[in-house]
């Protein structure tokens, strides 16, 4: 599904990712860990086709993201700590806009379905600025799954959420990470990362320091990288 080969990303003289390679199989839920500045968001951004690698390649299916970015984007949904929503529009208006951008068929039905899935049906006419942070993040998930993408990228989706909202978000993420959907999630919450992900990737010093099934790693072991 996703193949990363010899990926390098540099900003000027600062090299963020150093020659990393890994594969993600269809339907896999991968947790990507690393300290701040480890390159998680940079990697996510390149997989999402928002930025280009300095060297190396990323394949989605067998398509190079450099050559077929516009085509690949319809297969990707992204949830980040930024909601990518318009505060002045209602939840429904936001989703209707994105439905048009992704050529979603029967948008009204689909919008109702995803809003019910994230528990926001009933508030769909309210401006997004009146939503709580947790509600906005649930709407961001609705936006990301609106076109039912087979690849879901979750970049620290629990940032800024309180305990209750984080718990609700975890349940929601577990629900959207079905067997048909490949998920790559970054988080600083090691327990949640291990509970949701089937496999763990740890970025350290621009390289992959750990690539293992979740059963083979522990929170204590992963915490060591955060203390270094």
């Amino acid at each position: 599904m996703i193949k990363v080969r010899n990926l390098v990303k540099a900003f000027g003289t600062r090299v963020v990712l150093r020659n990393i390679s890994f594969d993600i199989a269809p339907g896999e839920f991968i947790t990507l860990l690393g300290v701040n500045g480890a390159g998680k968001t940079t990697l996510m951004s390149m997989v999402a086709t928002l930025s280009k690698p300095t060297a190396g390649t990323i394949f989605i299916g067998d398509m190079d993201t450099r050559e077929h970015a516009a085509y690949i984007r319809r297969y990707i949904g992204l949830v980040s700590h930024k909601t990518l929503l318009y505060d002045d529009l209602s939840g429904e208006q936001n989703l209707r806009f994105y439905a048009r951008m992704y050529d979603v068929q029967n948008p009204s039905e689909r919008i109702e379905k995803v809003l019910r899935e994230v528990g926001l049906w009933g508030r769909q006419k309210d401006p997004v600025r009146t939503y709580s942070r947790g509600m906005q993040q649930r709407l961001a998930i609705a936006r990301a799954i609106l076109h039912n993408p087979p690849i879901l990228l979750l970049d620290e989706p629990d940032t800024g959420l309180d305990q209750g909202a984080t718990s609700m978000l975890g349940e929601l993420l577990a629900a959207v990470g079905t067997a048909e959907r490949t998920v790559l999630m970054t988080t600083h919450n090691l327990e949640r990362g291990l509970s949701l992900g089937q496999r763990v990737l740890m970025l350290s010093d621009g390289k992959i320091a750990v690539d293992a099934p979740r059963d083979e790693v522990s929170v204590a072991e992963l915490s060591r990288f955060y203390r270094q």
Binding site: G61, M63, R74, D103, R110, H147, P150, R181
Partner: peptide, 29 residues
């Protein structure tokens, strides 16, 4: 390219065939 959809279980993808005038519709959106 047509081979991506088959390799990533396109049955689950709602938007796999853009309608006519998709570009103009997005400009309008």
């Amino acid at each position: 390219p047509q081979n991506l959809s088959s390799s990533i279980s396109s049955d689950s993808v709602i938007a796999h065939r853009p309608p006519q005038f998709s570009y103009l519709r997005k400009v309008g959106a």
